[in-house]
Design a protein around this nucleic acid. Structure first.
Lengths: 149, 149
DNA sequence: TGTGAAATTTAATGGCG
DNA sequence: CGCCATTAAATTTCACA
């Protein structure tokens, strides 16, 4: 089901996307709406499921995890489901996307160094064949919201 | 430069990762610390660059963008830099990672339907050869923080 | 670094256009 | 849907340990 938003909602999403800790009052000021109205809209966006979560972006390299890799996985016969059930054994995997194509899963991994990577690969082998690409840099864009408005 | 955090900081990161809109007072309650001390720690994490941003996760399918793809790009000779300079022309690209390997860039794209995808591919062709995988599902895990503590 | 307290600002609620 | 007014709660600032 598609949810229809207006300009206020798009502006709120745009503002929260850049700083989700702003107070309702401050968001309201930016979009010329009272704090009560702003709050109700934010809560509605959460209730509707448009906003899935208020999170935080972390620079893992500052925590001693200077190696980030994109891992593609080609699973053995029926190991896909088993792998998902055992995801908690792989704390270094931040997120997994199931995708179409030869490699049916792509995972973002946070590692301290190459020996950590070797260790991860060894633990993945039972499930399938991993292919590793080292992440050199990342650009996050937020034109999407501007584009909607 | 690596930054050393203690248990309080890791707990704060874990809590903020799940809900970045919690008040300092509430975070403080969860970790048995005063609101002033909690606030100072959060501000330090931001100042240190450990926290890059407080953001929001959005369910784009609810906004009419039901097709999410992972696009790998193999660039023509010198088009990589040109592409990055022109990223603003591609609002449907949420993030790009430069990676090692044959495909030197992998991008997350938000699209309304297959004709939107076709349009995107046409606009990408001048820069390089795109390979598209449709994203079927995604799992975000947050064992990473628990693992640190 | 952390705590506690006072002044200011927000959040939450309910009644009303 | 949004505004305003009221009460409760959180933030800010600062003195002190």
């Amino acid at each position: 089901m598609k949810i229809t938003l207006d300009q206020y909602d798009y502006k709120i999403l745009h503002i929260l996307n850049e700083n989700s800790r702003l107070s309702y009052a401050e968001i309201g000021r930016k979009i010329s709406l009272s704090q009560s109205a702003t709050k109700e809209r934010v809560l509605n966006l959460v209730e509707n499921g448009v906003i899935k979560q208020f999170g935080v972006e972390i620079d893992f390299s500052k925590l001693g995890y200077g190696l980030q890799v994109v891992m593609s996985l080609k699973f053995r016969n029926d190991e896909f489901k088993t792998f998902l059930d055992n995801l908690s054994k792989f704390p270094e995997i931040l997120s997994c996307k199931r995708i179409t194509g030869e490699y049916c899963l792509v995972a973002e991994c946070i590692l301290s160094d190459s020996s950590h990577l070797e260790n991860l690969i060894d633990r993945l082998i039972p499930y399938g064949v991993p292919t590793t690409s080292v992440q050199l840099s990342e650009v996050k864009v937020d034109n999407f919201f501007k584009h909607l408005m």
